[in-house]
Amino acid sequence: MDVNRRDFLKITGTSAAGAAILGLALNLNPIKSHAQSLKINHCKETTSICCYCAVGCGVICSTGEAGAGKIINIEGDPDHPVNEGALCAKGAGLSQLANNDSRITAPMYRAPYSNRWRNVSWEWALSNIAERVKKSRDASFEHKNNKGQVVNRTMGIASVGSAALDNEECWLIQALMRSLGLVYIEHQARI
């Protein structure tokens, strides 16, 4: 006969006094056989920070030893001062970021007027972005405004940031965009 937790609690009537009496007269054999029959999963817990937004909620990732560190569960870190264990709906589904067949793992490109995306290499994507930025910027660059004041700006490109960007990344983006002459610089958190 196997004895599991539920059976045991039922036998003892869920009272500590019951445990004092029954616990002492316990026959270990059925417990041993129960222990033998169980399949055991070993896991590890690691803390991390949710990658989605700038709130920076702490999470605890459980990874299984079997399956090369496969993520089993992600939960809010109750000891983290920012979120104290809570997660938003998006953060609560964080494990789907790693365990997801639909996850995009390479840059994709949709040509103008095309209705489909295709995979491209990082090299192709980055050099194309650079070329197009340069082209738009040169074509739209204004040295002076209508009043003849020096402005050195481009109104042809806008930058939209991301809530996942940290302070230092935002600084780098500011430096780059200002050097290109952009004035339409927005951060996602304000939209």
Binding site: L38, K39, H42, K44, E45, E65
Partner: peptide, 12 residues
């Protein structure tokens, strides 16, 4: 965390 871990039984 590399030196800590936990286990649980399937179904428990």
């Amino acid at each position: 965390p590399e030196n800590l871990g936990y286990f649980e039984a399937e179904g428990e």
